[in-house]
Design a protein around this nucleic acid. Structure first.
Lengths: 308, 308
DNA sequence: CTTGGGTGTGTCCTTTTTTGCAACACATAT
DNA sequence: ATATGTGTTGCAAAAAAGGACACACCCAAG
């Protein structure tokens, strides 16, 4: 991409926060970079950066402009993938941002299945906290987000959504495993293993506790869901997770899932989305289609069970 | 715009149909232009043009790419206008494409009123035939279209639409002016003045004639609606036009409008639209808002009349 | 079939633009 | 005050783009 190289420079400076730092990243001298920034500003007759003693910060005009730049770059990728697709080969890169509850289980299988059909498509998969996930989408650094308990849904377009009732994950030989469903008080009194405040699962539990006047004090708190599940498997306590149908893994036969008693805890909201009005690259779009199909299938299966 | 100059070159070549012709337009030598085109193709690793003995034609990949380029350019204009708008001054350029029935009467007043509020906004206003209007929109060479009897509505997003019953325009002292409404046969037998086939008004009349088994032979045929109205004013025959409420002009007191008898002729479809999913520059968007408001006002007024 | 005018493209050389290096002016934090 | 960071600016070198011309090619008319 030799053209719109100027735009890349602006983007790099905006990210780095200073011209010198960006120059290092771009492997050119600060003076050259500075002159290009000045040239662009003069050319557009618009000031983009606020010069500060400790670097540069985007102007309000610059905010609009950088958004345009990133949209342009993402759109070029989309065009490239479309062109590749019309020659028969599906190629491209799908960037997925998720919250921590999602990552390890649902997506890998789906990605593997997709890559079996289209080996030319590569994936990047990153977990952030809820606010950052939405920001990734808006900065066009992610094509698709899969998140639990979205915060604002601003500028997001829903691909698929589903209510999710939290289940308790506990060791198969745990005394409480004998019960078909658990009460919230039992969960809280048997060493609850919870993610930190701010994460979707934790907030749902907190809300339920407030509603019932209970005190939520996790025995172990970690932002690593896999770690919490592992502890649960060892009998260290009770973890929480999205329902079995979504996140079951054959390697965890010693871990069982039990629902809460009805209405004791509010269901959560599992959300798959993209940026509003954005046209995704073909690979991302097709993958999003599969994701949606999978959720629809599961929803139908669940409603079928409910009907019985 | 020094950056994305390469893209402008590609666009110019695509328009001109040959590198040499485009080079002339761009005021550079063909060899230089050729090298840039080759460089871009190599850089993208995509062939964009089919080399032909009598010039170049866009590849199917090139079709996608040129679309991307034009979208980029239009989007940059949008960003510029947004930035100008946040500094308080509304500035920009609104490009309107219409069919010939529209041009001379409805829009000038609205544009004048808009420019009275925002003198920094300039307008360009061009009339095409129906197919070309839609193409102007798709090529991003027009921001807003106002057209009568749209053909395909492909990739178009409706801003406003309205049914329009055709009226006969005739001299105030014409014998038929005594009638409150006219019959189709009377119209056809008193020197009909019509636009050529392919235009919306003509096609409506033709359809009505086929339905009634009548023969439509215009006394005078012209693609200049103002000319036809002028002839009608002189008593040369009967012209057709959109209803009085839309196109009346105080300078034409000697021209009166009479509707057809009910159900003798199908109503037409007046359409105001933009490109699907496109975000317009602020000036264009605000003008489109006014256009829509004006139509809504008129629709309400008409329904009020009908209710009486 | 030949010819003429059109095309895209390669090569040499000139001109313009961009870059790297070093120095400067300035603001902030220690 | 000093030290360290910032953006910015000459000046010379390097790189890229442009112009002029020639070549090979194809198509249509003569």
């Amino acid at each position: 991409m030799r053209h719109m190289l100027a735009l890349k420079y602006v983007d790099a400076v905006a990210r780095a926060g200073s011209i010198r730092a960006a120059a290092e990243v771009l492997a050119i001298t600060p003076s050259a970079l500075n002159r290009r920034i000045l040239a662009i500003e003069e050319e557009l007759d618009i000031e983009i950066f606020e010069r500060h003693a400790l670097g540069v910060r985007l102007n309000s005009a610059g905010e609009l402009f950088i958004h345009h730049i990133r949209a342009q770059m993402a759109d070029l990728e989309r065009v490239r993938s479309q062109i590749a697709d019309l020659s028969g080969v599906r190629i491209g890169h799908v960037r997925i941002a998720t919250t921590k509850e999602i990552g390890g289980r649902l997506l890998p299988r789906l990605i593997q299945s997709y890559r079996a059909d289209f080996p030319g498509v590569t994936f990047s998969l990153h977990a952030y906290d809820r606010g950052q996930v939405e920001q990734q989408l808006q900065n066009l650094e992610a094509d698709i987000v899969v998140m639990f308990q979205p915060l604002r849904l601003a500028d997001m377009q829903v691909i698929s959504h589903q209510q999710q009732h939290l289940s308790v994950a506990l060791a198969a030989d745990h005394p409480l495993a004998a019960h078909a469903e658990l009460r919230l008080v039992d969960f809280l009194e048997h060493h609850p293993l919870l993610p930190p405040r701010g994460e979707g699962i934790r907030e749902i539990v907190e809300a339920a506790c407030v509603k019932k006047g209970l005190n939520c004090k996790p025995a172990i708190e970690s932002d690593d869901m896999a770690l919490l599940r592992h502890l649960a498997r060892q009998g260290a306590g009770l973890a929480l997770d999205l329902p079995l149908t979504i996140s079951a893994s054959p390697t965890e036969a010693d871990l069982v899932y039990r629902p809460f008693k009805a209405n004791e805890i509010e269901p959560g909201f599992l959300f798959v989305g993209q940026l509003y009005k954005r046209t995704l690259p073909v690979a991302a779009r097709k993958f999003a289609d599969r994701l949606r199909e999978m959720f629809e299938l599961e929803t139908n299966a669940l409603s079928g069970v409910a009907a019985n």
